[in-house]
Each structure stands twice: as C-alpha cells, then as structure tokens.
Amino acid sequence: MSESDKNYIKMLGYRDDTNQVQCMVSNVVGLNFKEVNELADNEFLIDEWFMSVADAKHNVKIHGPYETMEDAMEYARKNLGVERFRMDEWD
C-alpha cells in the first residue's frame, strides 16, 4: 500500500428523508487515481477531493476537484440536499 493510500477517506452522503446513499465524497489516492480520472471530465491530482453520484443504471458522475473534504461536502449539500455524512469502510 502506498503512503497516499493510507490517507484514503470515503464518506457517504444521506438526506434525512431517506436511508439511501445520495453521493460519495472521497479523496484521490494512488488506489483510485486512474479510475477517478477515467470517469471525470476534469483532471484530478493525488490529495484532491471529489464528490460522485451514481444513477439508477450505476453510471457514475464525478464532480470536482475540490481542495478540501468540506468543499466537496458543501457541493453535495447545495446540489443534492445531503444533510449528513457517514464514514464508510473502504474496499
């Protein structure tokens, strides 16, 4: 495991009116660098943050990059109505 992978954080966002996951906020590490950049419209660097949303067909849209986790969470709050985040164990 690379040094950057040890700092991997994955937060799942929820609205209060449903228990369904609305989005994921995470940081870019070596572990997900290639996948994030393949799915994103913008280029991401290690240690940047993103917010992702999957539709009913499991198509993923990546938003960002953001400088901080809080910036990515704020985007989710404003655009998806997310009210709470929960740390998720990573794969």
Rank of each mutant, 00 (worst) to 15 (best):
D17T: 10
V53H: 03
M51C: 09
A54E: 08
S52Y: 03
L80Y: 06
N37W: 02
N37R: 03
H63Y: 10
D71P: 03
F85L: 13
Y14D: 02
M51P: 00
K6S: 15
E89L: 11
E67W: 13
M11K: 07
G30D: 05
A40D: 03
F50Q: 01
V36P: 00
N19G: 14
H58S: 14
A76T: 01
Q22R: 11
M11D: 11
W90C: 11
N79P: 10
F44G: 00
W49E: 06
G81H: 09
E43K: 14
A76V: 03
Y14K: 01
E43T: 09
R15G: 10
R15V: 02
E35I: 04
L31I: 05
E70W: 10
E89W: 09
V21R: 06
G30K: 01
V21G: 08
D41T: 15
N42C: 15
S4L: 09
A76C: 12
A54P: 01
D5S: 11
K34Y: 01
Y14H: 04
K6C: 11
E83A: 11
M11R: 11
Y66N: 01
D88Y: 08
S2T: 09
K57E: 13
N37A: 08
A76M: 03
G81C: 05
D71S: 12
V82L: 11
A54R: 06
E38Q: 14
G64T: 04
K10T: 14
L45K: 09
V21H: 13
Y8H: 14
K6R: 15
K34M: 02
H58A: 13
Y8T: 04
V53A: 02
F44S: 00
L39F: 09
M11E: 02
H63I: 01
S4T: 12
P65I: 04
I9C: 15
V28R: 00
H63L: 05
D5V: 08
D47N: 11
I46C: 06
V21S: 04
M69Y: 08
N7W: 08
D47Y: 10
V60T: 07
N7H: 11
E67M: 11
K6T: 14
Y75A: 10
M69F: 12
R86T: 13
D55V: 02
K34S: 09
Y8K: 13
K61S: 12
T68I: 10
D5Q: 06
W90L: 07
D17V: 08
M69K: 12
E83H: 07
R86Y: 10
M69H: 11
N37Q: 12
K78N: 08
D41A: 14
D5K: 06
Y14L: 04
E43W: 10
T18A: 06
M1F: 07
Q22G: 05
D16T: 12
G81V: 08
Y75V: 10
M69V: 06
N59I: 02
D71A: 07
D5R: 06
D17L: 01
A76Q: 07
D88G: 12
S2I: 08
R84K: 14
K61Y: 02
E3K: 15
M87C: 09
V53C: 07
Y14W: 05
M11I: 03
E83F: 03
T68S: 12
D71F: 05
D17W: 06
Q22E: 05
H58E: 15
M69W: 12
M73P: 02
K61A: 05
R86E: 13
M87F: 13
D41C: 10
G13R: 03
Q20C: 07
N59H: 07
V21A: 08
L12F: 13
